[in-house]
């Protein structure tokens, strides 16, 4: 029997495949049965309603895309009364992603969503922090530590902290999130980018800069997931550019306990369904009985030839 289940702390998921925040809604149920997923991760929302950024909000890149959707949000009340009841029909852990402008607001929102029906809070700390001149919380270890500590004291739900690749101190940030009480890390969010239409000399996105996602960022996100897995002892959920079985296996081998799939779903809405079938087939073909046999099994580098010290 092939066991696809995986553990994220106390939580056991039926399989390691889940959507990435902002790339998944109930609308995907038009295409396949969402009950097959390991978890349901919803779009980030804020306590107060927001409209999001001006259009164009997306642009095409050779090996991925860039978005400046922002966080259009219908607010907390809408979430609790309208969105939440829909997901109760699924026997799949529900992960809600939240965002706020300050540590206090973050903590208050975490407390407000600590309600039955929600299995996990995912904190999207890649958003600008008004207390730090608009720099994202996830850019520095100290701002990460502060916001995660506030979140930790506001909820007893499992807390996943989603990190940003737009930092020069990924290991310090990952450790700060762990020491402040994160139960798992989601690595990573989009990479800040820019694209210009040379015929009009205008930015291709209404918001000028945006977040790059898709295959283009996979090596970067994979490197960060590896660093996070190696430098902390909490589970890491890999995210960034996953579209194929091989992409997913790379993240698992690098130390991730599960993966999130985002942009690939836009190219092919059946991606997660396909990955799940391919993972099971691959495990059977290779005599692997559980996901644990794959996680964190990266071998030593090198081609096996002894290197000669030339210095």
């Amino acid at each position: 029997m092939t066991d696809l289940s995986t553990r994220i702390g106390e939580l056991r998921l039926a399989n390691p495949i889940m959507p990435a925040s902002g790339t998944f809604t109930e609308d995907l149920a038009d295409v396949f049965d969402l009950s097959i997923l390991g978890a349901h991760v919803l779009k980030t929302f804020t306590a107060e309603p927001r409209t999001g950024n001006p259009t164009p909000r997306v642009c095409d890149l050779a090996s991925g895309m860039m978005n400046s959707i922002g966080i259009p949000s219908k607010g907390l009340d809408h979430f609790l009364t309208r969105a939440l009841p829909f997901w109760a029909r699924y026997d799949v852990p529900l992960v809600v992603s939240i965002s706020a402008n300050s540590s206090d607001e973050f903590a208050r929102l975490a407390e407000a969503v600590t309600v039955p029906g929600i299995a996990v809070i995912e904190a999207n700390i890649s958003c600008p922090n008004v207390e730090a001149d608009g720099r994202a919380f996830a850019v520095h270890a100290d701002s990460t530590e502060r916001v995660v500590r506030g979140l930790r004291s506001a909820t007893d739900l499992p807390l996943w902290v989603k990190l940003s690749p737009n930092t020069g101190e990924p290991v310090e940030v990952a450790r700060a999130a762990e020491s402040a009480g994160a139960d798992a890390l989601v690595v990573a969010n989009t990479v800040l980018g820019l694209a210009i239409d040379v015929s009009t000399r205008k930015p291709r996105l209404g918001n000028v800069m945006g977040g790059v996602s898709g295959p283009a960022i996979k090596p970067i996100a994979l490197r960060m997931a590896y660093q996070a897995a190696r430098s902390t002892s909490i589970p890491v959920i890999g995210c960034g550019g996953i579209a194929t079985l091989e992409d997913m296996l790379e993240y698992l081998i690098a130390g991730c306990a599960a993966v999130q799939v985002g942009t690939a779903t836009f190219q092919s809405p059946t991606t997660m369904q396909r990955l799940l079938a391919e993972l099971e087939a691959w495990m059977m073909a290779n005599g692997i009985r559980s996901i644990a046999e794959i996680i964190g099994t990266l071998q030593e580098a090198g081609d096996g030839v002894l290197s000669v010290d030339v210095m």
Binding site: D27, K43, T55, P56, R57, N67, I69, T265, P269
Partner: peptide, 11 residues
Amino acid sequence: QMACGLGMCQA
């Protein structure tokens, strides 16, 4: 401009 075409991304 669209990305997903299904209602998920709000592009």
